[in-house]
């Protein structure tokens, strides 16, 4: 049995824009036109009735926290921002890319619940610390463990080997990955998102979320994802396969400059926003119980 390589796993997972592909391309084309306006983008999105309904519910949810009720897509875009709507659509495509697949090692739904909660946490940390582009950090949190999902789905035999080691010895799942493969899910995620042409900072934040100090170019972003992942592991919202709450990297914590007192409102915010975000990306489903 030949062990999988990072390049092989990436090649086996080509990018796909999924059912939102034509819409994403139409929006990109409209944005290049000098006549583009919010109304034009709104008209494009409103052609998709289901997306329009979800986008409006999402815009009126606690995640966005606007004090006025938004009733049209162009109003929603004007407050949320076109960039964020594009990011949301592209993140939806990634979830759709893996929809319907199943892994015996992790429930795909539970995996995305962990990922969505990490995205919410990363954005809330960014808002607390007034970091630029908090919505990009949502996407980084959402995709931080995507390498693990690719590994489990593309290489189930090696995933089984990893879980055998993980079941026998007291070690973290990431260390079990390294001992079986020589690399871990961070490396796969980084290579995959790079090949999918995601922004470099986001790619590096995903590729170093267990070792933020190892990446000078995206040290803060990687540290935010690291702390967000730690919080969500402690909260047990979904799971990406790890049964322990991995240790918090004190350097990452210091990099962000959060205080322990800030954790309460962030944890409350994750609980408050989770249902709306889950509905936007996964449809109406309740979080899976995970003691």
């Amino acid at each position: 049995m030949t062990p999988p390589t990072i390049a092989g796993l990436v090649l086996a997972t080509p990018p796909s824009l999924g059912s939102y592909g034509p819409l994403i391309q139409e929006i990109e084309a409209a944005l290049r036109s000098p006549q583009c306006s919010l109304g034009v983008i709104g008209d494009i999105i409103e052609k998709d009735v289901d997306l329009t309904a979800r986008l409006l519910r999402f815009s009126n949810s606690a995640y966005c926290g606007f004090s006025t009720k938004l009733s049209t897509v162009s109003e929603a875009i004007s407050l949320i921002g076109i960039q964020q709507v594009q990011d949301m659509l592209s993140a939806s495509s990634v979830l759709e890319r893996f929809a319907g697949l199943s892994s015996e090692f992790v429930s795909v739904q539970s995996f995305w619940q962990h990922s969505l909660a990490t995205g919410i946490a990363a954005r809330l940390i960014a808002l607390d610390r007034r970091l630029p582009k908090p919505d990009r950090l949502f996407v980084a949190g959402l995709l931080h463990d995507v390498g693990r999902l690719v590994l489990f789905l593309q290489s189930p035999k090696y995933a089984q080997m990893i879980f055998e080691v993980y079941g026998k010895e007291r070690l973290l799942l990431r260390k079990a990955e390294v001992s079986a493969l020589g690399f871990d899910h961070q490396n796969i995620g980084e290579a995959l998102l790079k090949s999918w042409k995601y922004p470099p900072t986001l790619v590096l934040a995903v590729g170093h979320h267990h070792d933020p100090a190892g990446c000078e170019a995206a040290r803060v972003e990687a540290a935010v994802v690291h702390v967000a992942d730690h919080l969500v592991n402690a909260m047990r919202v979904g799971s990406s396969g790890e049964k322990f709450v991995p240790p918090l990297n004190s350097q990452a914590w210091a990099t962000i400059g959060l205080t322990p007192e800030a954790l309460g409102p962030i944890v409350a915010g994750i609980d408050e926003q989770f249902d709306a975000v889950q509905e936007m990306f996964l449809g109406e489903t309740k979080p899976e119980a995970n003691a």
């Binding site: 919080l231 402690a234 909260m235 047990r236 322990f244 709450v245 240790p247 322990p260 954790l263 309460g264």
Partner: peptide, 19 residues
């Protein structure tokens, strides 16, 4: 559930209390 429980760490104690 925690890999490392360090009661001397104020971040851990706050998170543990919240959880």
């Amino acid at each position: 559930t925690f890999w490392k429980a360090d009661d001397a760490d104020p971040v851990f104690t706050e998170l543990f209390k919240l959880m």
